[in-house]
Design a protein around this nucleic acid. Structure first.
Length: 142
DNA sequence: CAGTGTTCAGGAT
DNA sequence: ATCCTGAACACTG
């Protein structure tokens, strides 16, 4: 399997990435850490130089409801947003379930859960709503 | 079983 | 117009 682990910076955050070849197993944000090599496309994406990370997430395969939700989320274009309800309708499930799937997303960025917002509010984001806002600002060319 | 990053309709202010 | 409720959804510890 040969899973590699690397860490890069994004603003005040450290981004831990677990991957093997073209498949990403886990992405996690942390306040502390030490830099170690990550796939080039992550660095380019996080510095606003490319729109596509171009890697697969382990969580999008299969026929489970979560997998269907994650595949729909990956269809949301760079710089745009969709609501929990919209994704729920596309994946034939409810908005609440979408929220849970986002909260348990093992690979944020690859599955761009930061692009999923509430119909009337920004929605939530682990570990920090500010981080969600920053990612959206960056994608809007801020 | 309880608890989740929601939403919508319906009813009371 | 705004502010509750409650139901529906799928999955995890």
């Amino acid at each position: 399997m040969d899973i590699r682990v690397g860490t890069c910076r994004y603003g005040l955050w450290y981004v831990d990435i677990h991957w093997s070849k073209n498949t990403v197993y886990r992405v996690r944000f942390s306040r502390i850490g030490e830099e170690a090599p990550v796939p080039l496309s992550f660095r380019l994406y996080l510095s606003g130089k490319t729109k596509k990370i171009g890697m697969e997430s382990i969580a999008t395969s299969g026929t489970s409801t979560f997998a269907r939700i994650y595949r729909e989320v990956m269809q949301v274009p760079y710089g745009e947003t969709a609501t929990y309800g919209e994704i729920g309708r596309r994946a034939s499930t409810g908005p609440r379930v979408v929220g849970i799937a986002m909260a348990r997303n093992p690979t944020p960025l690859v599955i761009p859960c930061h692009r999923i917002v509430g119909a009337r509010s920004l929605g939530g984001f682990t570990p920090s709503l500010t981080l969600k806002q920053e990612l959206l600002n960056m994608e809007r060319g801020g």
